[in-house]
Design a protein around this nucleic acid. Structure first.
Lengths: 226, 226
DNA sequence: GGGGCGATGACAGCGCGGTGACAATCGGGT
DNA sequence: ACCCGATTGTCACCGCGCTGTCATCGCCCC
């Protein structure tokens, strides 16, 4: 366990957010602040996966991927980039990046992609499913199943429920959920969380008026019960 | 409460500054003047967090981190260093330091990072439960359990009992409880405390008329007995 | 027996969460 | 490029239950 990730990210605030969130996810982290450092650490530290921001001072992200892939074809690379850089995306993937997340991104999505990339690379046979009660999350297909039959769920709904499934029994404030599911750089009212909770309840709860799985903790936030 | 910090700092003037400022923040302080002393005190004194200056005589900061992490992977380490030592920074973090502050630093920033590191560790700790007798507080789920079955409890009730659990056997005046549980900026009558004590007693005491856990100390306040 | 302190039940205010409607945004298809 | 539907996010209003205060009663200690 305890996969070692190399984060190549020059923006200190995003870096801190990543370190905190990915740290909580149980990853061991190494941080590089520009492309040069990134290449150096990729060689010296042998990370299990590299998270690379395309917007870098000095050497650009494309150049970093090219250099890395000259000596190492195996370590998965997950790329972060602004959403309008479509050309970068294609180029990065063709150079050997494994996956691509556009900013602003939710930590849940990033984590999902990191885990997926790690899983793909290893022959790690862990079940790509999380099940509590009659509800199952198919992580690979990003599908929500109840008793094996699919329930329609949107991206946010899935991410939110995924986060709850990863931390059953723990209370989260609306602010915490905003941070981890919507992303550290997202700004919005806490009320939005309520709405998605309501939508999830209407789908997964047997009796949405008396929810069992997603419980309200008054004055604090919400808790997921298995 | 009163977290114990170990300061490893050879410069006497910086050390004095840290002692004064961090002392005022309510931390308990231990000072080591070089790396050897630091390692020794880290082992003997079991501090809650270590503040480490990278510029040290004899053994360097990197070496100190490496040595500390061989036996102890948990105690957070916050590193101080001159701002141009970028490589040290990354190396320190990859060796297991938790956070990094560059000199010249503001005390406010250092304090913020210390508190963040302490909080992160507390969250990360597995056993988020406090148990006395048949009563258990599940801190992650914010649940109050008696013999393992959940008792309904409101936010305030939980916070108040949580405070008692953290200081068993200590008498608190109503004013102190108001300050710590309700918050320093809260204004209200001391009678409110009585009410919440009564509500807690009715829930957790076997015989609420002759309370055992939450004892009245006439003329003073209340005390929690395990 | 008296004074003072704590216990407790009642109650009013309001803060908090639930929810439906709507606006903004995204994305896919033609 | 345009349109249309789905998704996402915000707002406002409603209703409930927590919270805090008061008044009264009881009890302990002097």
């Amino acid at each position: 366990m305890a996969e070692k990730l190399l984060l190549i990210e020059d923006d200190p605030s995003i870096l801190r957010g990543l370190q905190m969130n990915l740290g909580l996810e149980g990853f061991q982290l190494i941080a590089a602040h520009d492309g040069e450092e990134g290449i150096e650490f990729a060689r010296s530290q042998k990370p299990d996966l590299i998270v690379l921001d395309m917007m870098l001072p000095k050497i650009g992200g494309i150049e970093v991927i090219r250099t890395l892939r000259q000596v190492d074809h195996d370590t998965p690379i997950v790329v972060l980039s602004a959403k309008d850089q479509e050309s970068d995306k294609v180029l990065a993937l063709s150079l050997g990046a494994d996956d691509y997340v556009t900013k602003p991104f939710s930590v849940a999505e990033l984590v999902a992609r990191i885990r997926a990339a790690l899983r793909r690379r290893r022959i790690h046979q862990a079940s790509a499913q999380l099940t509590f009660g009659r509800i199952t999350l198919d992580l690979e297909g990003r599908r929500l199943l109840s008793d094996g039959v699919e329930l329609e769920s949107t991206a946010r709904e899935f991410d939110l429920l995924h986060h709850f499934f990863q931390h059953p029994g723990t209370v989260f404030s609306r602010e915490q959920l905003m941070q981890t599911v919507w992303g550290a750089d997202h700004f919005g009212t806490p009320r939005t969380v309520d709405n998605f909770i309501a939508r999830l309840r209407s789908k997964i709860e047997t009796d949405p008026d008396h929810p069992h799985h997603i419980e309200t903790v008054r004055g604090v936030g919400y808790r997921f019960n298995p």
